[in-house]
Structure formats: C-alpha cells, structure tokens
Design a protein around this nucleic acid. Structure first.
Length: 569
RNA sequence: UGGGGCGUCGGCAAAUUGGUAAGCCACGGGACUUUGGAUCCCGCAUGUGCAGGUUCGAGUCCUGCCGCCCCAGCCA
C-alpha cells in the first residue's frame, strides 16, 4: 500500500510511527481506541485524546473504538457511561458499531489468567496489602519474594478458581504475575493481576467477584479488538514492558498492539484532574459537572463553546512527549475563530443606561437595517427600531473623559451603529457619581450612521430602543482560578485558595433584541462589541438566560489597564 | 543513591533525519474599519539546558555535566 495516499502534513511523532509501520507492512490498517474509565466526566484533556485517536483513524482510513475500561466496579457508574457517550458524540465523533466494554472480555481474560498459572507465570498470593507493599522494596532497593511465590501450579489453579467462586473475602488474596521482584521497574515486581471485590458491576452485574487490574486487562482488551496503536499518556510509559509482557507470554496473534505515550493537556487558569474536578462539584464551588466554568466537555457545551472549536484547538496544540501547559488564550482564540464566522450578530445592553435624544420627536419610530454578520453577507440583515429614548451600555458613558476614551462624554460625537451620529450634551449623575441618564443630539443628516460631510467618529456604539427590548439575565464568566497555575500558592495554602471569587458575574437586567427571547437553548450569538453568548438551559421565553462564551478582543480594556486604578473608577 | 521520560522564542510546537532555526498563540507597531471586533502588513531565538568534541557544516552525531517530570494502589 503506497503510503503517499495518506496525509503527510500534521507531522508529529505518532503519525511518524504509524506511517513507518504501514510502510514496513507491520499493519494493513490503523485501529485506535478511546478507553475511558466511567468514573467521572470527560474534560478538555480527554478531548485532546479523543480528537487524536479518532482523527488518526480517519486520516489513515481505519477506525476508532469507544471502549469503557470498566475494571473497577467500586468507582464506576452508569451515569458516567451515558455522559461519556453523549460527550464524544457531541464532539463530533462516531464509533459506529465499535462500542465495547472491557467487562465483556472478563471470561476470556480469566481463561488467559489460568493459562498463565499453568505456565507457572502467575500465582495466588495471600499477603495482606501491607505485606505486599513491604516486600515490593523501594525505588532503590529490590523487592523480596514472599512464600506464596513458589506455590504449585495445582494449588494456584485451585485457589484462583475458588477466588472466582467467591470463597474468599475482599482483600484476602490476589493473583500475581511472576516476573521479577528485583526489577528496577517497580511495575515488573510481580504486579497484581486480579483482586477480590464482592461488588456489583454497572455493566457486568453480579457475574464476578474478582476483577482484573488495568495492567493485565488493558493489553488484552487492545489485542482482542485488534488495536494497532494504543495511545495513552506519559505516566504509562513505565507500564509498557508489562503491557508487552502479557501479550508475549500469552502468545497472542501478531501483529501486537503497540502502546505509544504522549503528554496530557494542561491549561492555564484551570485544573484538570478528575479528583479536583470532583471536589469542585461536591463541595459546591461550582454548580455541577456542567457548570460553564468547568473544563469538562459538559461545562464547555453548556457555556456555548462549539465542538469545532475544541477540535481546532486539539489540532493547534499538537502532540508531543514534553510536559507542557497551554495558554488558555490559545483556546479562546480557537473559539473566537469559529464563532466569528458563524455566530449571528445581535444587540444586547448588559448594564443599561438611558440615552435621551433631545432633538428626536417623542413617539416617532424609525427602522434601521443592520447586518446579521459582516463576515457573511448571506446571513442577511435585520430591522431594528429607533426611538427618542435608547438603552446604551453603562461602560460607554462617562461624565468626564479619560485619555484614549472615545465613547460618550459631554461634547463628544459617536455613532449609534446603523442609525445616527449623536453628540453627547449632558451626563446626569446621582450624588454617588453614578451615571443615571445621558442626553444628546443626533445629526439628522447622518441617517444610517454616516455624515454627508464625511467626518469620522472614533467610536460606534450598540443600542436598543427603550420599550422595544426584552429583559434577560446574562452570566459573565471569568477564569475559575486567579492565577495561571492554581498550585502557585504560599506554603500552607492549597490550590483552592486560588479559586477566583469573581469567576461568575450576573447581569440580571440586561436588555436584548426581542427575537432573542425565541432563541433555542444552545444557540450562539455575538452580542456586538461584547462577546459571544449562548442560550443557557435555564432560559425561558419570559426570561432568556445567556452565558458569555468568550469576550471579543478588547483594545480599550488594554488601554484602560495602563491607566491608574483611580482614573478607571 | 533504582527504573523510565523530557529540555528549541513569554506559551504551544516544527525542522526533508548533519545542510545552515516553520507555523500558531501572546506581545509591540502600523494600515483599514459603521463592532476599540474582523481583516491586512511589520517586528518578535546570530540561536536550540550547559561545557567540550567530531565535521566543510551540528538543534540533529559523540562525551561529560545541569535541570524538570513520572513510578513504591489489591486505582486507571
């Protein structure tokens, strides 16, 4: 098979290995797998692995299996099984008929274990967990064999069968591979293959009371399914000799699956470990697994992130063996890139302040045509009403100007997008200095937003006619953590001390275009000048609720940051 | 002081396997602009952890250091 039929770009060490294997005739096809344990929700780190495995299969004309690595019933639940399928499908991948459960292979694995016992390569050990640990040695000292190591084949077989029969309590015995107690690789010091667990299994029910360990089960699962390239994360590098050992000793058919390790994803301003995410959920730091601030697939989906953006991100970060931390801004960039060309534009005023056009007749309504997406003329236009009283953004008004501030302040002229040029005449404030109303005059000659004399204004504002909008709740999200590295804490403090107290800000009285009340859950829009937003499941036609997916890039925010804090207030 | 990995721009990450350091994000500057958005230009590693060596030529090869990550679950 000519390898030239396969894409040569997207070069990374895994694709290089695959191309070489194909060229050498080791494999005729490429079969990968995504093997989650159903003990938690998938997060964006898993998404990297999912994208890698599925796109590799696509690129090389093979296939990718979805397989639950469900070998530990004490931690796994049906809820997670369902969530995982939903998430992988939502990401845009299809495993076809190839949905598997490791637990469906338990009988075969058991038979192979007996075979290993028969060959004298596995034995039943009666040591307590503590004894096993003590005899395993340390990183620098070899382990020592226990007395069970030289049991006869007959006794091992008998004991192992009785383990399966349920004759022994949890923790009383294990089946171990007989390899090398003195190996420098601790994984090879007679690793446990089976433990006794009298626990019902979410998929296998109560068929078993002994369960295989990952190290024994995984290579067999891969071999059974004909996996060619078994891709996992770096921490399994030490386990590869074991992975190969089981397959070799069992003399499973060639070609054997090959384990390849890559670096897991880390992102700034967030945590990725299942343990920590579970903690955030269980202790109420977030509202659930699908809280829009969570890096879970469910959270990103609820937030409004399009699956294309996640796939694009996975492609942009690449694949390598070096531990790294990806700047979350790269992720945001991918989200914007997708949304900029796909999201319809709308006007929404998050923190409304009334602008009165003093030279515009009361009761008059004019309709202006505004483009739905300047990036996509085919998206068409929509009509927006204009009246004497308008809502504008509080951030767009100041009683006194600031350097480089181009918006509304007395004497300054700006454009009301798609409508008129307006000059600010007066900014009314209360005794706390809070702006309560703005007054201005339009240039009647600037209908549509352009002055006949060609003069320019430096700012264009979004607006909504008072009485023609719908009130909405808008939820603004910021990073979950206040520091790029949540573990960056003084001695005695923990990552939890770095949680960002301002990760959620609610705007309960935002004004939006009326049609937005009809938008479906999950629909995405760009609120002009503000960012991209999606309809939250909490939304009702009476009270629409929007999540901010990501802000637009904001030059003014950068400028404002350079001004003194007092000047910004 | 065991074993396994990894060190290329602020962050990711390439380099036809020895042929003279891509690209993306971020950042800075400019153009354009009815979103301070988008788009477009320009800049951004005399240098690849350090020190030697081989070579006409080294990020790629050799030697020696240094640093970081992972492993002592009957978790995956």
């Amino acid at each position: 098979m000519p390898i030239s039929q396969f894409p040569s770009e997207g070069s990374d060490f895994i694709r290089e290995i695959i191309r070489a294997d194909l060229a050498a005739g080791k494999h005729r096809t490429v079969i990968t797998r995504f093997p989650p344990e159903p003990n938690g929700y998938l997060h964006i780190g898993h998404a990297k692995a999912i994208c890698l495995n599925f796109t590799l299969a696509q690129e090389f004309g093979g296939r990718c299996h979805l397989r639950y690595d469900d070998t530990n019933p004490t931690k796994e639940e049906q809820e997670y099984i369902e969530a995982i399928e939903r998430d992988v499908r939502w990401l845009g991948f299809d495993w076809g008929q190839h949905l598997y459960f490791a637990s469906d292979y338990f009988e075969q694995m058991y038979q192979w274990a007996e075979q290993l016992i028969l060959k004298g390569q596995a034995y039943v050990c009666d040591c307590t967990p503590d004894e096993v640990r003590e005899k395993r040695g340390t990183l620098t000292e070899p382990g020592i064999p226990c007395e069970h190591r030289q049991r006869s084949v007959e006794e091992n077989l008998n004991l192992f069968r009785r383990m399966r029969a349920g004759e022994f309590p949890d923790g009383s015995r294990v089946l171990r591979a007989k390899i090398d107690m003195a190996s420098g690789n601790i994984n090879m010091r007679d690793p446990v293959m089976y433990r006794i667990l009298h626990a019902p299994h979410p998929h296998a029910g109560d068929a078993w009371c002994i369960y295989p360990m990952y190290d024994y089960a995984h290579p067999l699962e891969d071999a059974i399914e004909g996996i060619t390239h078994s891709i996992c994360t770096l921490e399994f590098e030490d386990h590869r000799p074991l992975y190969d050992w089981f397959i070799d000793q069992l003399e499973l058919p060639e070609p054997h699956p090959q384990q390849i390790e890559f670096a897991r994803l880390n992102l700034t301003y967030t945590v990725m470990s299942k343990r920590r995410l579970l903690e955030l959920v269980q202790e109420g730091f977030v509202r659930g697994w699908d809280d829009p601030r969570m890096p879970t697939i469910a959270g990103l989906r609820r937030r409004g992130v399009p699956p294309e953006a996640i796939r694009l991100f996975a492609e942009r970060i690449g694949v390598a063996k070096r531990n790294s931390v990806v700047d979350v801004q790269l992720f945001e960039h991918c989200v914007r890139e997708v949304l900029n060309r796909t999201a319809p534009r709308r006007f929404a005023v998050l923190d409304p302040v009334k602008l009165v056009i003093t030279n515009y007749p009361e009761g008059q309504v004019e309709w202006f045509s505004v483009p739905n997406n300047p990036e996509d003329p085919a998206a068409g236009q929509r009509q927006l009403p204009f009246t004497r009283e308008l809502w504008v953004e509080r951030e767009d008004v100041r009683a006194y100007p600031l350097p480089k501030y181009f918006r509304l302040y007395p004497g300054n002229e700006v454009r009301l997008r798609g409508a008129y040029l307006v000059t600010c005449r007066e900014v009314l404030t209360d005794d706390t200095g809070q702006v309560v109303e703005v007054r201005g005059e339009i240039d009647p000659q600037s209908r549509g937003g352009q002055a006949p004399d060609g003069r320019r204004v430096k700012a264009t504002l979004h607006w909504l006619a008072v009485g023609h909008g719908v009130e909405a709740e808008v939820r603004l999200y910021d990073y979950l953590f206040a520091k790029p590295d949540p573990d960056d804490v003084p001695a005695g403090r923990t990552w939890r001390d770095n949680l960002n107290p301002n990760s959620l800000t609610v705007r309960p009285h935002a004004q939006v275009e009326p049609a937005l009340a009809q938008a479906a859950v999950g629909e995405r829009f760009q609120f002009e000048r503000l960012g991209y937003f999606a309809v939250d499941p909490d939304s009702t036609p009476q009270r629409p609720v929007f999540n901010r997916i990501v802000t637009l890039k904001d030059e003014w925010a950068k400028v404002a940051k350079t001004l003194t804090p007092s000047a910004r207030s």
